[in-house]
């Protein structure tokens, strides 16, 4: 514990005085403010002379406006935050030849990894809380609506899930910083994983599902049954992607009108209409219930990542060459 706290303290100081922390914060604040201002003003326009709809506050985060929503932005940029904070965690110490010194002090080896991970998570949490507060403040000013308890609750869950999601990427990048001796290599490897999950899992899922469960073309048109199967397979495969897990989970939490994590494609026009018009939003507890498997999966892959990290680092010979 002493080891973790000491390293944590030093790493936090390092981060706060680092340019990379400044840049990450600047990018997020910039995007957050711009997106919120645009979305906020659009909502303001539409709200004129109308009764306040339920959970409008969350629209600040989920509404895409002309660009993209803040939530979409974090879904995309979040992995990069994790990677930037972790890609050189261990190999930087190796290069500066401080690692052999560190491991020869009376601390458990895993406390080095744990402290670095904890630092990354804390930094991420600080950035996220700050930006959510900033957006909320801006939003209250722009649309003149104060968030209710449920909205705050949903945002809190969103925060936790996002933290988990970014922690996964932090875990991946720390793992690579243990495996690869060069910081450039570990950064590239992390980016490769990010690109793989961002683009190719979706694509690959399409290919695989077409192979396993092809859509049957009949003379009367397409077979609905086979489309269902095809989409199902595709979804299951893309659940292996942390992006999909995260997207589904936060979608459910912040957009309570959605009742399943399945794609809306499967619904007929009537159902879609009824969803948008006549249904009440899902209560918070039920949203949470539906997303729980996603959250657990995210946690599981993060822990898996860590397990590998320990295995590699514990037995690794640290030689100052």
């Amino acid at each position: 514990m002493r080891g973790i706290l000491t390293i944590f303290r030093k790493e936090m100081e390092d981060h706060f005085s680092s340019t990379r922390f400044l840049i990450i914060s600047a990018v997020i604040v910039m995007v957050g403010v711009i997106v919120t201002s645009m979305v906020g003003m659009a909502i303001q326009e539409e709200l004129k002379g109308m009764v306040k709809p339920t959970l409008i506050f969350l629209l600040l985060f989920t509404s895409t406006g002309k660009l993209f929503s803040f939530v979409q932005f974090i879904g995309f940029f979040g992995p990069l935050i994790g990677i930037i904070l972790g890609f050189d965690a261990i190999n930087r110490e190796r290069i500066s030849r401080t690692l052999s010194k560190l491991v020869s002090q009376p601390i458990y080896r895993d406390s080095i990894i744990n402290a670095k991970f904890l630092t990354g998570v804390t930094i991420t949490a600080i950035i996220l809380v700050a930006i959510i507060l900033l957006i909320s403040g801006l939003g209250i000013k722009l649309i003149g609506v104060v968030p209710g308890a449920e909205e705050v609750g949903r945002l809190l869950i969103y925060l936790i899930v996002t933290l988990l999601y970014i922690s996964f990427w932090l875990g991946i990048s720390i793992l690579f910083s243990v495996i690869f001796k060069s910081t450039a290599t570990s950064a590239l490897a992390s980016l490769a994983v990010w690109i793989f999950f961002s683009f190719f899992v979706g694509l690959g899922a399409g290919f695989v599902s077409d192979a396993i469960a092809p859509v049957n073309q009949t003379s009367a048109g397409v077979d609905a049954e086979s489309i269902m199967r095809n989409v199902k397979v595709q979804r299951i495969i893309s659940l292996f992607s942390p992006m999909t897990l995260y997207g589904d989970a936060t979608g459910m939490i912040l957009d309570p009108m959605r009742k399943t994590t399945s794609a809306l494609v499967l619904m007929g026009p009537l159902e879609r209409l009824s969803i948008s018009r006549f249904q009440n939003p899902l209560p918070l507890v039920e949203s949470l219930y539906i997303t729980l498997p996603h959250i657990v999966s995210l946690a599981a892959i993060t822990i898996l990542c860590f397990g590998i990290c320990y295995l590699v680092f514990m037995k690794q010979e640290v030689r100052a060459v």
């Binding site: 010194k101 002090q105 458990y108 060459v321």
Partner: peptide, 19 residues
């Protein structure tokens, strides 16, 4: 290992510092 590291000082070859 921790008992050993408590009582042993180690200067690695080409020691590094936080510059």
């Amino acid at each position: 290992p921790l008992d050993v590291k408590k009582i042993v000082g180690y200067l690695p070859e080409n020691v590094g510092f936080y510059d």
